[in-house]
């Protein structure tokens, strides 16, 4: 294959390849445009994990379902690929806009750059992005939450419920977004009872390693924390959080849910007695309000902050045990008032 007479032939082949490339470079053919023009309703572009993560993406999907019911359109939701680049995300958002979906919502800050680029290319479409407020454009609505406020209340509840004076925090991936949950929780605990110790554990360094999608990792982390004396564990770990709740329930310790009211989730019904409360983050409501604004012809634009005041974040009281822990309910209500009144400032970094 590699002997002298073949050189010329090989060179020709290489030349052909280069020529083919050059041909491509000139861009033969049109672009894959051809918008349908019709309004197809809201489209969601999921973050890693996609549908069925019982957490972040599913919360967004609830918003889409509500929009379907109220506005009578089908809408769509598209999953990402593993390890994809920004170029893939741009392609996805542009394709959705092209097909006539409006609004197009990127679920997760990972879509920030892609949203910026797609919004420039489709100025008549409203874009939404969850968990990011760095994109500044007229047709972009940034849906951001004060996760630290809900987590602060979870911290207050944990400090009131603990008997061992040790509580745990399990974060899915060691990223700034999850640091907000940790910071709020730790502050809530300390402000309520300075003697309570907080053990913190992050499952993985990157999302690709499965920090948000490995219940087994969550379980192992929770077991270790219980061994070290923790009797209330708060998790912000997506699907991995199920492992935390399972481990806590087995040892008859408290777990605190996240994002949606996990006490009411079917997948967790076996352990629900041990889910003290959940720090909610109403992604579905935020996504729906964007769809509604587009439907009303007055699309939201710029930063839309969902805090304790608007009910964008908070804690749930669906577990009857929540009201039975002495002083817990009152302390949480007081903290909530103080945060809304601005008397308590919750830190966003630990």
């Amino acid at each position: 294959m590699r002997r002298m007479p073949r050189i010329t032939q090989r060179c020709t082949r290489t030349a052909v390849a280069v020529a083919a490339l050059a041909l491509l470079a000139t861009g033969c053919g049109g672009t894959s445009s051809g918008g349908s023009g019709e309004d197809k309703g809201m489209a969601l572009a999921y973050d890693i994990g996609g549908e069925g993560d019982q957490s972040f993406n599913d919360a967004a999907y609830a918003g889409l379902e509500q929009a379907r019911k109220e506005f009578g359109y089908e809408g769509t939701a598209v999953e990402p690929k593993d390890g994809e680049s920004d170029a893939d995300k741009v392609q996805r958002l542009k394709q959705l806009a092209k097909q006539g979906y409006d609004p197009v919502v990127g679920i997760g800050f990972i879509y920030a750059n892609a949203t910026k680029e797609a919004a420039e290319a489709y100025p008549d479409t409203t874009f939404g992005i969850v968990d990011d407020s760095t994109v500044k454009a007229k047709n972009v609505a940034a849906l951001v939450f004060n996760e630290e406020q809900g987590s602060y209340l979870a911290g207050v509840a944990a400090a009131k419920a603990t008997k061992s004076k040790t509580v745990g925090f399990v974060g899915g991936v060691d990223v700034p977004l999850i640091h907000k949950f940790e910071a709020g929780f730790a502050q809530g605990v300390k402000d309520t009872d300075p003697k309570v110790k907080v053990i913190t554990q992050y499952l993985t360094e990157t999302a690709e390693e499965g920090g948000f999608s490995s219940p087994d990792k969550g379980k192992a982390a929770a077991e270790a924390q219980i061994e070290n004396g923790a009797d209330v564990i708060y998790q912000a770990a997506g699907l991995s959080g199920q492992g935390v709740i399972e481990a806590a329930a087995k040892e008859k310790k408290w777990a605190i849910g996240v994002d949606s009211d996990q006490y009411k989730q079917k997948a967790l019904s076996a352990y629900k007695a041990y889910i003290l409360t959940s720090a909610t983050k109403d992604v579905g409501g935020a996504v729906f309000s964007l769809a509604e604004s587009v439907e009303d012809g007055k699309p939201l634009s710029g930063e839309q902050r969902f805090s304790l005041k608007e009910g964008g974040v908070g804690v749930t009281e669906s577990n009857p045990e929540f009201g039975k822990v002495p002083g817990l309910k009152e302390a949480v209500a007081k903290a909530k008032e103080d945060i809304i009144a601005g008397k308590i400032k919750v830190a966003t970094t630990p």
Partner: peptide, 18 residues
Amino acid sequence: PTLLNDTHTYSLSFPSSL
């Protein structure tokens, strides 16, 4: 190709599993 031609930064959204 991704870094120098597109993103110009290394971030959490840098493509993996290449």
